[in-house]
C-alpha cells in the first residue's frame, strides 16, 4: 500500500468522529498544494502528499479551537503541534495526529530562480532529482538545490507525537550538530553591529507590513489583537517606515523566543524575501544556551519563558 493510500485509509476511519481533517490538495499547478478541509469521505479524493506540501497546517489550529480536528503533520509541523500542546493552546483530546515521515519540501522561490518556468503542469520526483514539465518543455534539477533550507538541515523528519504513523520512519538528513551549523547565521555573526544594522535596514525597507509572516506562524496567536495594530494602547504608528516595521519584527521575534519551532513559515510567507527566520534562530540559540531548551520536542516540558526560577543557573544577575 502506498503511503498516500495508507493515509487516506486512516483518515477514512477516523473521519466520522471528527469535525474536519486538515490536509493538502492539488493546487493551480503541480508545484502548489494548498491546505484544505476534509469533512466528507468524498473530499479525500483531492488529498495529496509530497514535497509540494509546504504549508504547516498547525497554523490553522488556533482558530479551530473548540472543534475536533484531525491534522496531517510532517516532522517539523509536529513540533509546532507539540509546542501548542505544551502551551495548552490546543487540547490533546480534541486532536487526532496523522504523522507523515518526511523527506523534505520544495522551496518554490528556489525553483523559480533555477528553472524560470511558466506553468508547471507535471512534477515527478526521482532519486534525488525533480523533473518539471512546463508548456512542452521538461527540465530537471537536483532536489538538494530546490529543497527548503530547513529541510537540508532537518534533524526531526519524524513526528514524535502522533496517533497514526503512516509508513516507515526516515533517517534524519543530518546530525544535531550539523543541523545547528547554519552558514547564514554564521555570516550574520561575522558582521559588526553597524554592518548588521545596515543589513536589516536594507531588508526591512521593502517590508510591506503585510503580516503574512505573523499570520502564517502557528505560534503567533495574538494575530487578531496584535500590538502592531492596537490603537489603545497605541504602541505603534501605522506609518510604514523602517523604524515601525523593524519594531514590529523585533517584537514578533521576541514573542517567539524559545517558542518558535523553526518551521520557517514566516520566512516562506514573506512575498519580498526578507530573511526573518534568522532573528528567530538567533533567539532560539540564546534560549538553548541559557536554558538548554528546544521548543516543541517534549509535550510534558515547560517552556522556559513560561516559568520562573529565583536563581537561574546560566544567568548571573550579579554580572549583568
Amino acid at each position: 500500500m502506498s503511503q498516500l493510500t495508507e493515509l487516506k485509509e486512516a483518515i477514512r476511519k477516523a473521519l466520522p468522529d471528527l469535525d474536519l481533517v486538515l490536509g493538502w490538495r492539488e493546487g493551480y499547478d503541480a508545484l502548489h498544494a494548498p491546505p484544505y478541509h476534509i469533512r466528507r469521505q468524498e473530499d479525500l479524493e483531492h488529498l495529496v502528499f509530497g514535497p509540494m506540501c509546504v504549508n504547516n497546517l498547525a497554523s490553522q489550529l488556533m482558530h479551530l479551537r473548540g472543534k475536533k480536528v484531525g491534522i496531517i503533520v510532517k516532522g517539523c509541523d509536529a513540533r509546532s503541534v507539540v509546542e501548542l500542546l505544551q502551551e495548552k493552546i490546543v487540547n490533546r483530546e480534541s486532536l487526532v495526529i496523522f504523522a507523515m515521515p518526511c523527506k523534505g519540501v520544495l522551496d518554490v522561490k528556489k525553483i523559480r530562480r533555477a528553472l524560470d518556468i511558466d506553468h508547471a503542469r507535471e512534477v515527478h520526483f526521482h532519486n534525488g532529482t525533480i523533473e518539471i514539465t512546463s508548456g512542452d518543455k521538461t527540465s530537471s534539477v537536483e532536489l538538494k538545490d530546490v529543497l527548503a533550507d530547513k529541510c537540508l538541515r532537518c534533524h526531526y523528519p519524524n513526528a514524535t507525537e502522533y496517533d497514526h504513523f503512516i509508513g516507515e520512519p526516515v533517517e534524519p538528513r543530518v546530525s544535531a550538530e550539523e543541523a545547528a551549523a547554519d552558514p547564514a547565521m554564521e555570516e550574520l555573526a561575522g558582521m559588526d553591529l553597524t554592518e548588521r544594522f545596515a543589513f536589516w535596514k536594507t531588508h526591512m525597507n521593502r517590508c510591506l507590513r503585510c503580516y503574512a509572516c505573523r499570520n502564517s506562524c502557528p505560534l503567533c496567536f495574538c494575530r487578531d489583537v496584535c500590538l502592531a495594530d492596537s490603537r489603545d494602547p497605541h504602541w505603534q504608528s501605522q506609518e510604514t517606515s523602517v523604524r515601525e516595521k523593524w519594531m514590529f519584527q523585533m517584537i514578533h521575534a521576541m514573542h517567539l523566543a524559545g517558542r518558535c519551532t523553526q518551521c520557517g513559515e514566516c520566512e516562506r510567507a514573506c512575498p519580498v524575501g526578507i530573511p526573518i527566520l534568522l532573528l528567530k534562530k538567533h533567539l532560539n540559540a540564546v534560549v538553548k544556551d541559557l536554558f538548554n531548551y528546544e521548543a516543541g520536542i517534549d509535550p510534558t516540558a515547560t517552556p522556559p519563558l513560561f516559568t520562573f526560577k529565583v536563581e537561574e543557573e546560566n544567568i548571573k544577575e550579579i554580572e549583568l
Binding site: 484544505y36 503585510c210 503574512a212 487578531d224 510567507a269 512575498p271
Partner: peptide
Amino acid sequence: WEDMTAACVSCNMCTYL
C-alpha cells in the same frame, strides 16, 4: 466560503499587492 478560505491565514498580503 469556509471551504474556499481553508488555506487563508487572513494576512494583508493579497490586498497590498
